[in-house]
Design a protein around this nucleic acid. Structure first.
Lengths: 246, 246
DNA sequence: CTCCAAAATTGGACTAGACAATTTCGGATG
DNA sequence: CATCCGAAATTGTCTAGTCCAATTTTGGAG
């Protein structure tokens, strides 16, 4: 490993004006409990000698970071801290129960569509082959938490959509109806921004920062079973995992 | 588990004007290879009958998602795909070598400071007790990848800063000089936005979306050893883990 | 042809303001 | 006292523009 003292002493990063506003707001927020009202945009604009656009840029960033909440017609408030959401435990429902919360799932849409290049590659089917597309909303204590979109081969799992509409869990249907159990998976985590649709389902704003967890799961014989993307609000959730070296 | 058909048929989400611009840009981007120039802001403004502010909002979101790259004075270009970065393997250096890249680390700053409430709680020291603060820049093939800020108890690890300045790896110093080996850790992953400092170190813009990985590690006796936060550019990196159910 | 300085182009930051959507609150009314 | 309604307050969206900074292009001098 190469280690060297960094010579980054050149020019210090120049600070945009909106960032001065942001630091001022962080000072204000620091001591206040969640739910406290912060000054209005027009007041901040006058107090800090700037335009409303600049104030809104600072506010918008803090909202995206989960430090503030804006309510049209009402005001801007100090936000609740982010919720820690454990990864890699057994199932969504058990995770919630383990922490004393009620989990539920709403089936938003279940149908079939033609596989795009990416879906076809992930599910090992031909391009334009029919695949199931299952969209569900995960809720904890009746608050929307994540939008999940699953893709599975329609040829391998015929009639899946109908079974799911009866209200069964996806993994139980896979096991009991098709004898398929995913045993390995590759998960990726990345940032994204909310589309109008996701924003509405999750009660946030279009463009809001999101955490996207994608899981690509495989059966014991190595065949791909499911490809699912779960969209979480980045301002509200923080993923937690426990590591051990052994 | 409660499952119900969702009745979210009310009003469809209304689409902001900037989102029309964004979708238009996504159409353009879709077929083009990385490095391709996209239309200028002023041209898009005229073509789409909107203001430059609105065009820039759409462009800015796509830049944050890693789909576009803007270069002042030059133009806006289709970006390279995100880099997959494996989590939870052994060490930073080995991860890079395993994929055929050269890893290096620059020591930006190493000194001592008084523990804030949060640091004190995490390191199990008194508030205002001295703690080491070590800031390093991780590079892959000489491209900055992440800014890491570590905190360790100064009382437990006397003289650590001097040892690190000699160029040793942190974990080797802990093991060989102090006989301490972290065996468990709790990791959290969340979104954030870049400060001017992080933006400059990583070559991105202030406010750009980031992925922040925090690791709180413990020795075999359960005592906290280190608390480290690693800031990655969210437009460039995507974390990957492999799961097995057994 | 080469080189250099000026001009043009392009993105970056910020301002001022108009109007819409929503919430809040107080006054009129029953 | 309760209810309804409208004005005021507040955030949401979008426009039109200015000025600046960085880069690229152009064109003239040599």
């Amino acid at each position: 490993m190469v280690v060297a003292l960094a010579d980054r002493s050149g020019r210090e990063p120049r600070e945009p004006k909106y960032y001065v506003v942001k630091r001022h707001l962080l000072d204000i927020i620091g001591t206040l409990p969640p739910g406290t009202l912060v000054p209005t945009e027009r007041l901040l604009m006058v107090q800090l000698g700037t335009s409303r656009t600049t104030v809104r840029q600072a506010l918008g960033e803090l909202v995206g970071e989960g430090r503030l909440v804006r309510r049209q017609g009402s005001g801007t408030y100090v936000a609740e801290p982010k919720v820690h959401w454990p990864l890699r435990m057994t199932s969504f429902t058990e995770q919630a129960h383990a922490t004393g919360h009620a989990a539920s799932t709403e089936l938003i849409d279940a149908g079939r569509e033609k596989a795009t290049d990416e879906i076809a590659a992930r599910l090992d089917v031909r391009v334009d082959a029919l695949v199931h597309r299952i969209e569900r909303l995960r809720l904890v204590d009746d608050v929307p938490m994540a939008v999940e979109t699953s893709h599975l081969s329609a040829q391998r799992f015929p009639g899946l959509a109908k079974l799911l509409r009866r209200g069964d869990s996806l993994y139980r249907v896979l096991r009991e109806e098709y004898g398929v159990v995913p045993v390995t998976a590759e998960e990726t985590i990345e940032t994204a921004s909310a589309s109008p649709r996701e924003a509405e389902l999750l009660g946030t704003e279009t463009g809001a920062p999101m955490l996207v967890l994608s899981r690509h799961s495989f059966a014991a014989d190595g065949s791909p079973v499911e490809w699912v993307q779960s969209w979480y609000r980045g301002d509200r959730y923080r993923f937690v995992t426990r590591l051990t070296t052994d």
